[in-house]
Structures are given as C-alpha cells and as structure tokens.
Design a protein around this nucleic acid. Structure first.
Lengths: 242, 242
DNA sequence: CGGACTATTGAGACTCCTCAACTAACGTGG
DNA sequence: CCACGTTAGTTGAGGAGTCTCAATAGTCCG
C-alpha cells in the first residue's frame, strides 16, 4: 500500500535531485519557462540533505524554531494546526515538488507530518537564502513557485467556502488528480478523518458524501484509498455547481 | 468619507515611492529585515507608473491578458471572481503595500476593482522581472512578501472554514485592525455585501451577525463604516472560539 | 483470532440560506 | 435645498443541510 503511494506522483528525476515543479506563473511567462536547469538542480542538491521519513513521522512541530525549508521528492505530507478547541485543522497536503517549512518570526506556523513514507530535501534556511540571492534566476523559480502556492491557497479557500459536502468532496478528489486529464483512477493517500479536517467537515459528513457519490453512480471506491470516476459528466457538474 | 479612507493605513512614505510592507517571513529572518532600501525604492519608482483610480473603477478584468503587476500606495482594492452560479466571490481585500496582479498562463485570474479612491504603482511585468533578476536582494524582498501572502491566504482559509457567522465577522474585524494592538475604532471601507461575499455568507447573515454583536454589547457601530470594540475580552473570546 | 482504530449509518438539534417585505442612506436633478 | 429614485441594509418566517451523539460494521496488525 505504502509502496503504491510512493510510486505515485513521482517526478521523473525527483528521486535524484530536488525538483521545483513550477507551472507558468507570476507573469505571462513564456511557455518554455521555469523548470530548473541541470546546473541549478545540482546547486540545490549540493546544499540539501536527503531525509527519509516514515508514515506518521513528524517533520517539525508548530511553534518550534524554524531552521529548515523542505522540498518533497516522494510521498505525501500533511501540514496542520491544532486549534484552541482541540480541533485539528489540516491546512495542506503536500506532494512531490512542493516546498514547505515557511516560518513566521522564526517559528514554524504548523506541524508537518508524513502521511506516507516520504523522501524530503532539507535546506538550511540561511544557506538557501544566500544561494538564492546569488542566483537571481534560481530565486525567480522560487518566486514563481510561491506565486503558484498563493493561487493554490486561494483555490483551497474557495473549496472550503462551499457549503455542500458532496461538492467539496468532488473538488477535493479533482485536486488529487493533479493533471486535469489524468486517469479515471485516483489514489487517496490520506484517511477520511484527514479529508474531513481538511475540508472543514465532520468525519460523518465526509462519509455520507462518499456514500452519496457512490449511490448516484458518479464514482466507485474499489478500496478506501482509491476512487474511480464512473460518470465524468455528472462529476463535473457536481464539482462546478457552486 | 472617501477622504477618511484615504488617510487611513498610509505608509509614511507610501505616497512618494512604492513600498513593500514585508514583516519577517520565510526564514527566521533577523529582525532588521525586509523593508526596502532607499535605493531599491528608487529603482522601483523608476520603472513604475503611478495610477489613480476612482471608487468602483476596475483595474483589470478576469481572463484579460496580464501585462502588469501592481503595488498599492493608498486606498483599498478588492479582487473577485464571478462564479458560474452568478455568485461573486471576493477572494481578497488589498491594502497599502500589498502586491497584486498575479497571473496564470498570462491571464489575470480575478477582477480587481477599487473599493475607495486609490493610488497604485503599475509595473510592466517583463521589466519588473528583469529588474528582480538583476537585484537578488530586491527580489528576496518580493519573495518574503509572497511568503507572507501565502500565510495570509491560509489564514483566510481558516476564517472561511468557520461555520458560525458571528465568529467569522469577529475574525474579519480583527483582520481589518491590521496591527494587533491597534485602536478600538476600526474602519470598514467595504460594504456589507462585500463582506458577505468575502466571508462566504449571505448579506442577511452578515447583517444579523453585526446586530448580534451590537446587541450583546461587544461592539457598536457609530456608522456603517466604523466599528468600535466595547468589550475586548468578550470579543476575543468569540473570535478565538472555534 | 482478538483488539484498536477507522468508517458507515441513523435520529434529532441547530444554524445558515432563501424569499419577501420594509427601512435607511445616498446622490442626482429640478 | 428638497424630492424622489436607487442602492444598501435590516428584520421575519420557513426550509435545507450539516453537526453531534450514539450504535454498528469493517479493516488492519499483532
């Protein structure tokens, strides 16, 4: 099971050197744009440490001093914040080529924990900053990546803002299927509880939503960590009907 | 009325040169960090065009070609997206020192419209990029700013994720009061409708929430664009009770 | 083959949404 | 300067959807 997750979403060379999957961004960038050059890749690799983490392993904790930034090579990581009420709020699931570890006033804002076994590139923040300042071009790739992050975050906001559980779930599934025209089979590495605290729903509502989608013949679940879209048209309609 | 809005939130020198209000970020940055140097300010000013916009004036439209990036010097701008359902989602209110105009595949993702009279700095995207690439230090300020944006977006997600209208409203008011220890009087430049489509509530719910807060003696509204916190303790309790 | 965790399903309470009527504020032109 | 029309905001009644609590079923692992 874990193996399956690991093999998924892997960038072609992601297991060898850090990758920044940056789709066109900030500016009207020429289509040839922001994948890292071999040289940049090597420069990053030179200052990075490879870290393997097991499922459920905590990468760093909320409010602890932030000295590292991470890029994911393989696996899935979740970032969450424990609210005063005891609720746990998952703010993001992180996939290969994602950057995480952003700090505020020198402290991590959330806790990062591995969902599946994962391979991470760890950067000392000060070293990374120096490297970026000296290579304006490389830094620009980071800038683009962050721009992308901003939009992702805003997309998530729209997702969370929806009221209907099935719509939320459909949007979530769509997000998991990173490439728009991807396969009809989509892996779901995280648990229902994780999905619930990401979508701002109760576990029960998520469960009811999955049942509803299945009952209507929109999707089926060969197992709990896999969903197959049966009726794409209806799926799209549910997803985009706000 | 407009004059009041204009005088608010103005950076000391914001009316003279572009400012990037960047609080400590990405890394455990030394406290002296990322305000622009005079030289950087001038460099930016040299490639920027000052643009004045009237209330309700559209700065750019969704899906139009994106050739400019903006920094706000004075005033308030809102960014929204019209959903297929006809609903209008306000994704952000932008204040002085905020950057906006991020594009996806060369097109603007949202429409930007002035809430109050505003003064903007307009940058040609290609010129800005070149400038940034040549000044790694300046680009780093942008990087920090974007990091900040990411966190802001995630904060908004938490806000939107709340179910209770009064709690949402309280968090929103808190956000308007940019500095934590600010005055008890907080200006609300936007309309109730704007607030509603930002918070993902109906106009009626926002109205009921304001009434409820006032009835409970937590705040009062000297006029519709001004709120005064009466009972800070209770306010805090409502805000942080998720 | 248990035991613990994860997920599903049911019943009732609560909150927000929609529809609708009404009031208040603004600003435009006579 | 006032009257009027338009936009913005308030308040009420009923319906839809999710949440909580509780009990049951399914899955993973030792």
């Amino acid at each position: 099971m874990i193996e399956k997750h690991r093999s998924r979403r892997m960038m072609p060379s992601a297991d060898v050197e850090p990758a920044l999957q940056a789709t066109p961004f900030l500016p009207p960038i020429r289509p040839d744009a922001p994948l890292l050059t071999d040289e940049q890749r090597m420069r990053l690799a030179a200052i990075a440490t490879r870290v393997r983490v097991a499922p459920r392993e905590v990468v760093y904790r909320e409010d602890s001093p932030a000295s590292s930034v991470f890029i994911i090579a393989e696996g899935v990581v979740k970032a969450f914040k424990d609210m005063s009420s005891g609720r746990r709020w998952i703010t993001a699931f992180l996939f290969p080529a994602d950057v995480f570890g952003l700090a505020e006033n020198g402290l991590y804002v959330r806790t990062a924990q591995a969902v599946t076994a994962a391979l991470l590139y760890r950067f000392d923040v000060n070293v990374l900053i120096e490297t970026l300042k000296q290579d304006g071009d490389l830094q620009f790739k980071f800038l683009c990546k962050l721009t992308h992050e901003v939009r992702e975050a805003q997309r998530q906001t729209i997702l969370i803002g929806r009221k209907d559980a099935i719509g939320k779930l459909a949007m979530f599934i769509r997000q998991l299927q990173r490439e728009p025209g991807g396969s009809r089979d989509i892996e779901i590495p995280m648990t229902r509880s994780d999905i619930a605290s990401y979508l701002g729903l109760s576990l029960e509502s998520v469960s009811r939503a999955t049942s509803a989608l299945e009952r209507r013949g929109v999707v089926c679940f060969p197992n709990r960590h896999l969903v197959r879209i049966i009726d794409q048209a209806q799926f799209d309609r549910i997803e985009s009907t706000l």
